[in-house]
Structures are given as structure tokens and as C-alpha cells.
């Protein structure tokens, strides 16, 4: 028992060493906390500043008025309806395409250099500056396909922008399903599509939904690509209503309507010299942040609700 004897002999030294090592532990924990706080506190302060600046405009009128050259009367009506309609187009196109692409890549695509290439590209696309998407959309949607500077163009552009996010999060959600569950389904004689539809999709849609919402909240705040495709900055009208009182009740004219969105309205107000408009801009910024936070909160809540019944 030479080994034990040696520890006892140097007990003081060993204890000092352990103490030293634990100090490093503590040091790193402290450093990490500091970094975390730096980010969080900065964000909180910025958010607080927005709220404080925009406070006078936290009224219902602000949501029901069109923009105006009088700062005090100017509102967000055309901007938030524009945002809502653009987001609708984005959702309707990006979600089915992104989820289907993710499912295909994960479940059906053969694993070879070509799919590897696609995989790397999809991940890289998530990092491409958004203005590049704007330029692409200007060439493709506005000029080549002739969609004009419309809600449709904006929605499709943002759909392209968030497609990588939807695809990547779909794949991650699918990968979280254990092999044993797939094998169990195949084991009773299920076809690939039965496995995908009855199991893979059903157990992963909480994760997919989270990715979709995170993508949508990113799209909500995007400004650069929307400016590039030529959104208007001053709109005192609403697009034709999507729902009508007479049959066929649905009207798609709004798709080709000119529009503005909240971040562009904010940008417009900020660029005015009159300080009164800056209050409007701050209020808009606060609203965008609140909506984004609500969307992310909803994503977390839904994931929790869905994951609650799934344990692996």
C-alpha cells in the first residue's frame, strides 16, 4: 500500500493542489457568467431604451392610423398589415417546401457526395447576407417572373431566406428520433412512407415548429432584402382584403399589391430629421421585439407541450 501512504504523507500538499484546481473551476464559472450578463444586460438596456422612447406612442391609434407627415398622427396600419400578409406568403411557401426538403434529405436521399454537397450548401445558405437574397429576388421575382414590387415577391424572398433555417431544424428534429423507434416500426412491416408519416413526422413536429417560428421571427425583422426589391416607404392605403363578403370569399389581388412592412416603416421614420418621428420609430421597434419574443415564447411552450409525452 505504498500509494496510499504517499497520499497521507503529502496530505497538506494534496489538499493545496485540490484547492488550486477548484479555484480555476470557480474562475471559469465567473468568467462565463460575466460574458453571459454582458450580452443579456446590453440587450435589456437597448430594449428598455426603445420602450422608454416609444412610450408616448403606445396607443391604439398608432395601430389604426396610416402614416402621415404629421408625426403625432402617423400610425402603423399599413406596415403591420403589410407584415402580416408578407409573413402569410412566407409561411405558406417556406414551411411545406422546407419540411419536405428536410424529410427527403434525412429519410430518402442516398448518402453520397452529391447529398453531402447539398447539405453543406444548405447550411451555408443560412449564413448568406440577406441583401444577397434581395438582389436575387429583384432579378428573379421582380423582373424575370414579373411579380413586380409586390407582397408576393416579398413573401417569396423571405421564404427563400428562412428556407435553410426550416430545413436544418427539420433535419435536427428528425435526427433526434432514436434508431430503435424506426426499427420497431420497420420491424412490424411498415413501409418507408408509413414510418415517415406515422412516426418520424409525428414525433419531430415539435422541433420542426420551433424552427419554423424562429425562421418566421427572423423574417419579421428583415429589412435589407425588402428594401432591395423595392418596398414602398410611405403607404396610405391597404392592399385589397384577402377575404370578401361575396363568393368565392377569397381574393388574391392583395398578392400583387404594393406594400410596406414594420421594419421599413421604422427605418423611414428614423431617417427623418424631425425628432418627433423618432418616437414612432422606437415604438415600432419595441413592437417588433415584443412580437418576436412572443413568437419565440410560443415556440418554447409548444415544444414543451409536445415533448412532454415523448421520452427518449
Amino acid at each position: 500500500m505504498e500509494h496510499r501512504a504517499s497520499v497521507i504523507e503529502n496530505l497538506g500538499e494534496v489538499r493545496a493542489m485540490i484547492k488550486r484546481h477548484k479555484r480555476n473551476d470557480l474562475l471559469f464559472a465567473g468568467l462565463g457568467l460575466l460574458c453571459l450578463m454582458l450580452g443579456l444586460v446590453t440587450l435589456m438596456l437597448l430594449f428598455w431604451q426603445l420602450i422608454a422612447d416609444g412610450y408616448p406612442k403606445f396607443t391604439l391609434d398608432f395601430l389604426t392610423e396610416f402614416p402621415s407627415r404629421h408625426a403625432s398622427r402617423a400610425g402603423l396600419l399599413s406596415a403591420w398589415t403589410g407584415s402580416l400578409l408578407v409573413m402569410t406568403v412566407t409561411f405558406v411557401t417556406a414551411v411545406p417546401i422546407g419540411v419536405a426538403a428536410g424529410l427527403y434529405l434525412e429519410e430518402y436521399a442516398p448518402k453520397n457526395w452529391f447529398t453531402d454537397l447539398i447539405e453543406i450548401n444548405v447550411s451555408n445558405l443560412a449564413g448568406v447576407p440577406s441583401i444577397i437574397y434581395g438582389l436575387l429576388a429583384l432579378g428573379l421575382f421582380v423582373y424575370m417572373l414579373g411579380f413586380g414590387q409586390s407582397i408576393l415577391t416579398a413573401g417569396l424572398t423571405l421564404a427563400l431566406l428562412i428556407l435553410p433555417i426550416v430545413i436544418v431544424s427539420t433535419r435536427e428534429a428528425i435526427r433526434a428520433i432514436p434508431v430503435s423507434i424506426r426499427e420497431a416500426a420497420y420491424g412490424v412491416g411498415a413501409t418507408k412512407w408509413q414510418v415517415v408519416y406515422d412516426h418520424v413526422f409525428k414525433y419531430s413536429y415539435g422541433g420542426i415548429l420551433t424552427g419554423v417560428i424562429i425562421g418566421m421571427s427572423r423574417a419579421l425583422g428583415e429589412t435589407a432584402p425588402i428594401i432591395t426589391i423595392g418596398a414602398l416607404t410611405f403607404i396610405a392605403f391597404l392592399p385589397p382584403a384577402p377575404i370578401t363578403a361575396e363568393p368565392p370569399f377569397l381574393n388574391f389581388e392583395w398578392l400583387s399589391s404594393g406594400f410596406t412592412v414594420m421594419p421599413i416603416q421604422m427605418f423611414n421614420w428614423l431617417s427623418r430629421p424631425d425628432h418627433a418621428f423618432h418616437i414612432n420609430a422606437a415604438a415600432t421597434g419595441a413592437l417588433i421585439i415584443v412580437v418576436t419574443l412572443l413568437m419565440n415564447g410560443a415556440a418554447i411552450w409548444m415544444r414543451y407541450k409536445i415533448r412532454k409525452n415523448i421520452k427518449w
Partner: peptide
């Protein structure tokens, strides 16, 4: 293989019920 799995079923190492 689907036909085969309909005739020959399997129980796995770890219980793997569906959720």
C-alpha cells in the same frame, strides 16, 4: 423485406414502444 417482416417479427434489446 416488408413481406418478410410481416411473417417474422422482432423484439428488441431495449423496450422500444412508440410514444
Amino acid at each position: 423485406p416488408i413481406e418478410v417482416r410481416m411473417r417474422i417479427s422482432m423484439v428488441f434489446q431495449k423496450p422500444n414502444p412508440f410514444p
